[in-house]
């Protein structure tokens, strides 16, 4: 069943009405339903063209939004998952492996949130533990040694804030993942495909080029977290999330302006509504960015990455 977000109420109503009309089984009913569908599509496009940052946050978290496995299934052939950090465990929240992208061997690493209750639990809702980041480092180093470009798909509410993860060095694992990314002798492209929250995101996002879906969000903390910290003492702190989302500048359009991302990937009407189109757009964006880095030496790739992050904040 389709999940509708609060602000999609008119779309939900239209869909329900169309279903009723179809249920009549008459040609007239079908015709009216089709007309209604067309109108709903137009309304959806108009609605999605001017979403607020908070609404986009909800779209980025939409349960039917494509995830790592959907992108890989559509864009990567011969995908061969690789497991384990070789020190402690396999973390299903951050997964990765080798495969071919447009015929070229690549390493793909990313957060997987899961698609239903069982798989969400299995993948810990895409919240990585230290071993997940350490596996990412291992795969990056492997890619570096064999000259495979690295593509990361970032989609996390944040690294998992558990007690055991702290004991095993959650912070250190993230810091080392960022360090490993910056050190790569091969091209690295990060795609912010859903939520890119906090250190849990940056550990996989210190790339040469960063692309982002138009309804994805990328921020230092979730709007709810930001609101609870900055509006502490305000009894409506929780309801300030929308306000915080606005202030934080977490949308793709804002981040492009700030120079934090390089390219916005279109997802008309939301990636959950038209996943095939969104995934194809992402594939095209990744191909373009990879082509742009073709022929650069390891030293140039490293230097480019360094210069990119050193400039952030200086040139606003």
């Amino acid at each position: 069943m389709t999940t509708y977000l609060d602000f999609e109420k008119p779309l939900a109503e239209a869909a329900a009405r169309a279903a009723e009309l179809r249920a009549t089984g008459t040609p007239a009913g079908e015709k009216a339903a089709a007309k209604l569908d067309a109108r709903a599509d137009k309304a959806a496009a108009a609605l999605y063209a001017k979403l607020t940052p908070w609404q986009r946050t909800q779209v980025a978290r939409h349960p039917e939004r494509p995830h790592f496995k959907d992108y890989v299934a559509a864009l990567i052939t011969e995908f061969t998952p690789l497991s384990g950090d070789r020190g402690f465990a396999e973390d299903a929240a951050i997964i990765g492996g080798m495969g071919r992208f447009n015929g070229r061997s690549v390493m793909v690493i990313g957060h997987e949130k899961g698609a239903d209750t069982a798989s969400r639990v299995k993948h810990n809702f895409g919240m990585g533990r230290p071993e997940g980041y350490r596996k990412a480092i291992r795969l990056m180093e492997l890619a570096g040694r064999f000259g495979l470009p690295v593509i990361t798909l970032v989609d996390t509410a944040g690294a998992y804030p558990g007690a055991e993860g702290e004991a095993r060095g959650q912070a250190e694992a993230i810091a080392r993942a960022t360090q490993a990314s910056l050190d790569l002798p091969v091209p690295m492209i990060a795609a912010i495909v859903g939520e890119g929250m906090s250190g849990g995101a940056i550990g996989l996002a210190a790339a040469n080029r960063i692309v982002m879906f138009e309804n994805a969000v990328y921020a230092v903390i979730s709007p709810e977290g930001c609101a609870s910290i900055l509006w502490r003492g305000d009894d409506k702190a929780a309801s300030r999330a929308a306000e915080a989302a606005e202030a934080m500048k977490l949308t793709a359009a804002d981040l492009l302006k700030l120079g934090v991302i390089d390219r916005i990937v279109a997802e008309p009407g939301g990636a959950h509504r038209a996943p095939a189109e969104a995934i194809a757009n992402l594939g095209a964006a990744l191909a373009t960015e990879l082509a742009g880095l073709e022929g650069q030496s390891p030293a140039e790739l490293r230097a480019g990455r360094r210069a990119k992050f050193l400039a952030m904040g200086r040139l606003i």
Binding site: A175, T178, Q179, S181, L182, D183, S198, G199, A201, I202, A206, Y218, A219, V220, I221, C226, I229, L230, A247, M248, K249, L250, L255, L258, V260, R305, R306, F309, L310, M312, G313, I316
Partner: peptide
């Protein structure tokens, strides 16, 4: 931690300082 009021730009200081360590 990061300075909330500078949003994503504070997050970007994580890779930025890591470059300095390199």
């Amino acid at each position: 931690g990061a300075r909330m009021q500078e949003g994503i730009l504070s997050l970007m200081q994580m890779p930025r300082t890591t470059v300095a360590v390199a």
